[in-house]
């Protein structure tokens, strides 16, 4: 069972990066500046509108050709592709949650004479984040599944090792793939529980309407 560490590292790196992107892009789409708004909007639609596997190949094969940019290593090409893709999806969650909280709470916060920044930090974000958590959890499971794609661009993750093993032991193919599936499921289990827990939490302590 080699390659586990690669799978887990790719997952953690892309998760952290994608959450970061999600918040930046989510706020970008709520910005007062029209250029920032349009630009982040364009980014989100492009990455949501094309397929992750196409993006991955593009970062890996095409980008070097265009600008002579080499994203340092295969590892970073893969992580950046996954993070940019899921960051785009999750920025919609960030934006939606903030909007839905802000609608009801803005007036109350303004009545307490808070500044725009205080309003966001003290009132809106704490509630919005709680609303985002279950969806973030769901996307984390999606990202785990997406890490299997990195074997296609040469990263030696668990699927890669499984494929290599299978090509030399053809008759063991069922065992190999069942084991890989079980491995992914075991990794997913804590994420599933975490998401369910977050779903319960999110129903508490958020002002509805």
């Amino acid at each position: 069972m080699q390659g586990i560490n690669i799978t887990v590292t790719v997952l953690i790196a892309s998760a952290v990066l994608s959450y970061l992107i999600a918040f930046i892009a989510g706020f970008g789409r709520l910005s007062n500046n029209i250029f920032i708004r349009k630009f982040t909007g364009f980014y989100v639609e492009v990455f949501r509108g094309t397929s992750l596997i196409v993006q991955l190949f593009w970062f890996y094969y095409a980008l070097p050709g265009l600008f002579d940019i080499h994203l340092a290593t295969d590892f970073w090409a893969a992580v950046i592709a996954i993070a940019m893709n899921y960051g785009a999806y999750m920025s919609e969650i960030v934006r939606g949650s903030i909007l839905s909280v802000a609608k009801g709470q803005r007036e109350a916060a303004t009545a307490l004479n808070m500044s725009r920044f205080q309003r966001m930090r003290l009132v809106i974000l704490p509630q919005a984040v709680r609303m985002m958590l279950p969806e973030f959890g769901n996307y984390l499971i999606q990202m785990l599944k997406a890490t299997s794609l990195v074997s296609l661009v040469g990263l030696t993750d668990i699927l890669y090792h499984g494929d290599v093993f299978r090509s030399t032991h053809l008759s063991l193919a069922p065992t190999v793939y069942i084991l890989i599936l079980i491995f992914y499921f075991i990794l997913a289990l804590p994420l599933i529980w975490l998401t369910r827990w977050a779903e319960k939490q999110s129903s508490k302590g958020v002002a509805s309407e």
Binding site: K145, S148, D163, S171, A173, P174, Y177, Y184
Partner: peptide
């Protein structure tokens, strides 16, 4: 739902005939 479709495809394509 929580395992990669890519692996599921490989299973059906490479492993199923061996079952």
């Amino acid at each position: 739902r929580s395992t990669p479709p890519l692996v599921q495809l490989f299973f059906l394509y490479y492993a199923w005939p061996m079952v």
